[in-house]
Amino acid sequence: MVIEDPKTNKLIEVEKLPDGTYKVTIYDKKTGEKKTITMSKKDLEKLLKAL
């Protein structure tokens, strides 16, 4: 799943891993910076609600 946040000009890509956690990659379209973090479903839901 890919989500675009027009306010921050970032793309957020979410991928479910076999162990039940989620790999979240955040791309900054302005700088080209890429950050990848792994989080639980509960933390991911908090992140998505904040957008």
Results as ranks from 00 to 15, higher is better:
Met1Asp: 15
Met1Thr: 14
Met1Ala: 15
Met1Asn: 13
Met1Trp: 02
Val2Ala: 03
Val2Pro: 15
Val2Met: 01
Val2Ile: 08
Val2Cys: 10
Ile3Lys: 01
Ile3Gln: 04
Ile3Ser: 06
Ile3His: 03
Ile3Val: 10
Glu4Thr: 03
Glu4Pro: 01
Asp5Thr: 01
Asp5Ser: 01
Asp5Tyr: 06
Asp5Phe: 10
Asp5Arg: 00
Pro6Tyr: 03
Pro6Ile: 09
Pro6Phe: 08
Pro6Trp: 03
Pro6Lys: 06
Pro6Asn: 07
Pro6Cys: 12
Lys7Cys: 13
Lys7Ala: 14
Thr8Asp: 08
Thr8Phe: 04
Thr8Trp: 06
Asn9Trp: 07
Asn9Thr: 03
Lys10Asp: 12
Lys10Ile: 14
Lys10Met: 15
Lys10Trp: 13
Lys10Val: 13
Lys10Ala: 12
Leu11Met: 12
Leu11Gly: 02
Leu11Trp: 04
Leu11Gln: 10
Leu11Asp: 02
Ile12Gly: 02
Ile12Tyr: 15
Ile12Phe: 14
Glu13Phe: 14
Glu13Ser: 08
Glu13Asn: 06
Glu13Thr: 14
Val14Trp: 09
Val14Glu: 00
Val14Leu: 06
Val14Gln: 01
Glu15Cys: 05
Lys16Arg: 12
Lys16Pro: 15
Leu17Ser: 07
Leu17Ile: 11
Leu17Met: 13
Leu17Pro: 00
Leu17Arg: 05
Leu17Cys: 11
Leu17Asn: 10
Pro18Tyr: 12
Pro18Phe: 09
Pro18Thr: 13
Pro18Asn: 10
Pro18Val: 11
Pro18Trp: 08
Pro18Ala: 10
Pro18Ile: 14
Asp19Val: 09
Asp19Cys: 08
Asp19Ala: 12
Asp19Pro: 05
Asp19Glu: 11
Asp19Arg: 03
Gly20Tyr: 07
Gly20Ala: 09
Gly20Met: 13
Thr21Gly: 04
Thr21Cys: 12
Thr21Met: 08
Thr21Tyr: 05
Thr21Lys: 04
Thr21Glu: 03
Thr21Asn: 05
Thr21Leu: 11
Tyr22Asn: 03
Tyr22Phe: 10
Tyr22Ile: 01
Tyr22Glu: 00
Tyr22His: 02
Tyr22Ser: 03
Lys23Ser: 05
Lys23Pro: 00
Lys23Phe: 07
Lys23Trp: 09
Lys23His: 06
Val24Ser: 00
Val24Gly: 02
Val24Tyr: 01
Val24Met: 05
Val24Trp: 02
Val24Phe: 01
Thr25Ala: 09
Thr25Tyr: 12
Ile26Asp: 02
Tyr27Gln: 02
Tyr27Ala: 03
Tyr27Met: 07
Asp28Asn: 04
Asp28Phe: 02
Asp28Val: 03
Asp28Gly: 03
Asp28Lys: 02
Lys29Val: 04
Lys29Asn: 06
Lys29Glu: 03
Lys29Phe: 07
Lys29Arg: 04
Lys30Ser: 10
Lys30Gln: 13
Lys30Leu: 13
Lys30Tyr: 09
Lys30Cys: 05
Thr31His: 09
Thr31Ile: 06
Thr31Leu: 04
Thr31Gly: 08
Thr31Pro: 09
Thr31Lys: 09
Thr31Asn: 12
Thr31Trp: 06
Thr31Gln: 06
Gly32Met: 05
Gly32Leu: 09
Gly32Lys: 11
Gly32Glu: 09
Glu33Phe: 12
Glu33Cys: 07
Glu33Gly: 10
Glu33Thr: 10
Glu33Arg: 06
Lys34Asp: 08
Lys34Ser: 09
Lys35His: 10
Lys35Pro: 02
Lys35Thr: 12
Lys35Arg: 09
Thr36Val: 14
Thr36Met: 10
Thr36Lys: 03
Thr36Phe: 14
Thr36Pro: 06
Thr36Tyr: 10
Ile37Ser: 11
Ile37Trp: 14
Ile37Asn: 10
Ile37Gln: 09
Thr38Cys: 06
Thr38Arg: 05
Met39Trp: 02
Met39Val: 03
Met39Tyr: 04
Met39Arg: 00
Met39Ser: 03
Met39His: 01
Ser40Met: 05
Ser40Trp: 12
Ser40Arg: 14
Ser40His: 06
Lys41Tyr: 12
Lys41Ala: 15
Lys41Glu: 09
Lys41Arg: 14
Lys41Asn: 12
Lys41Pro: 04
Lys41Met: 14
Lys41Leu: 15
Lys42Cys: 12
Lys42Glu: 14
Asp43Asn: 08
Asp43Glu: 10
Asp43Pro: 01
Asp43Ala: 07
Leu44Phe: 09
Leu44Lys: 01
Leu44His: 01
Leu44Arg: 00
Leu44Thr: 04
Leu44Val: 13
Glu45Met: 13
Glu45Gly: 05
Glu45Ile: 10
Glu45Ser: 10
Glu45Tyr: 14
Glu45Cys: 15
Glu45Lys: 04
Lys46Phe: 14
Lys46Pro: 04
Lys46His: 15
Lys46Leu: 15
Lys46Gln: 15
Leu47Lys: 00
Leu47Pro: 00
Leu47Gly: 00
Leu47His: 01
Leu47Met: 13
Leu47Thr: 02
Leu48Tyr: 04
Leu48Lys: 01
Leu48Cys: 05
Leu48Val: 03
Leu48Trp: 04
Leu48Asn: 01
Lys49Gly: 09
Lys49Ala: 11
Lys49Pro: 07
Lys49Glu: 07
Lys49Tyr: 15
Lys49Asp: 08
Lys49His: 11
Ala50Leu: 13
Ala50Asp: 12
Ala50Tyr: 13
Ala50Glu: 10
Ala50Ser: 06
Ala50Gln: 04
Leu51Phe: 04
Leu51Met: 08
Leu51Ser: 03
Leu51Cys: 04
Leu51Gly: 04
Leu51Trp: 01
Leu51Gln: 03
Leu51His: 04
